[in-house]
């Protein structure tokens, strides 16, 4: 019980710290939303008036706590430029980003675990060497290069999948939606899979040199079967790393969404930051932080179940 409380306290402290960092970092950027809205030839008086309307003339501390109080009540505010509700905008964009991140995470965990187990069993086989070289390559090649190669091959040359975009009707056009996410998912999963495969392999190798493995072998199980008996222990570290990587995936999504012209959370953030739409950006970032913390909690819980030793 105290473990749960400790985790909860760390989580809350982490989130509070994030809000302060987000709030201050955004305001340290040069330029502001008043200039973005009124244009570069706006008079200083007009800019000052608009800033006053936006409430930017109030002390930072007041602005910060107002934001926090609103957010705590579930009110994420409105975009200063489009006037739309941030909650609506975020939900709208999660339609694309959530499936994208979930699918590529799932894909990379499944493929990486399989690759890890196989390569651990056949240490010196040339297929293993080839696979591990491939993972090295997967780590080295940047996501946008993978994305462009996939587009050139499947969209431009073979013309079997769209080069980018997401259907205007969203998920009600399910076939078109799935089609439009195939290449982005593959591109986003590529480096993730490569990295997780290396973790899965070393985790499988660890297990293969453990007493449990030797005992299973001694009981007459095949190497495959013996390794499978420890699959929970092999998967747990992979899950942990994958959960740590989710924040990175959001960054990766920025790149992938841009290359594939997807209306996702990442591309929205980049644009709003460029326009200095602070109230919106800080609320969106807060949502991302909350999602990452929530996911960590879920993975921690899952790991507790996978590896009973942890919860003792």
């Amino acid at each position: 019980m105290s473990g749960v409380l400790r985790r909860l306290a760390t989580g809350v402290a982490g989130i509070l710290f994030s809000t302060i960092a987000i709030f201050l970092l955004l305001r340290a950027l040069p330029g502001d939303v008043a200039t973005a809205r009124l244009g570069t030839d706006a008079t200083p008086e007009a800019l000052a008036e608009l800033r006053r309307e936006y409430g930017f003339d109030r002390p930072l501390v007041v602005q910060y706590f107002d934001w926090l109080a609103d957010a705590a009540r579930g009110d994420l505010g409105r975009s200063l430029l489009s006037g739309t509700s941030v909650t609506d905008d975020v939900l709208d964009r999660l339609d694309v980003t959530l499936p994208l991140i979930a699918a590529s995470t799932a894909l990379s965990i499944v493929v990486a675990s399989a690759v890890g187990r196989r390569t651990a069993l056949q240490r010196r086989h040339r297929r293993t060497v080839a696979t591990m070289t491939l993972t090295q390559l997967g780590l080295a090649v940047p996501t946008f290069v993978v994305a462009i190669v996939l587009i050139m091959l499947f969209a431009v040359r073979l013309n079997v999948l769209p080069a980018g975009g997401f259907p205007v009707d969203g998920w009600s056009a399910i076939g078109a939606s799935l089609r439009s996410l195939v290449l982005p998912t593959a591109a986003l999963a590529a480096s993730q899979t490569a990295m997780l495969a290396r973790f899965a392999r070393s985790s499988a190798l660890d297990f293969a040199s453990s007493d449990a493995f030797r005992t299973a072998r001694a009981a007459g199980r095949s190497r495959h079967a013996a390794l499978l008996s420890g699959r929970r222990l092999v998967v747990a570290p992979v899950l942990t790393v994958a959960s740590l990587q989710v924040a990175t995936l959001v960054t990766g999504a920025v790149v992938v969404e841009s290359v594939f012209a997807l209306p996702g959370l990442g591309s929205m953030l980049v644009r709003d930051i460029a326009n200095r739409d602070y109230p919106k950006v800080q609320s969106v970032l807060l949502v991302v932080v909350l999602m990452v913390f929530a996911l960590r909690a879920v993975v921690n819980f899952a790991n507790d179940r996978l590896d009973p030793r942890r919860s003792e």
């Binding site: 587009i151 969209a155 431009v156 013309n159 769209p162 080069a163 980018g164 841009s258 012209a261 591309s267």
Partner: peptide
């Protein structure tokens, strides 16, 4: 008439080459 927006110039070009 659809005005489609591409933040990435390469994405715009690919969309044209792919006939999107």
């Amino acid at each position: 008439v659809v005005f489609r927006y591409f933040t990435d110039a390469a994405a715009l070009s690919n969309a044209l080459l792919a006939g999107d």
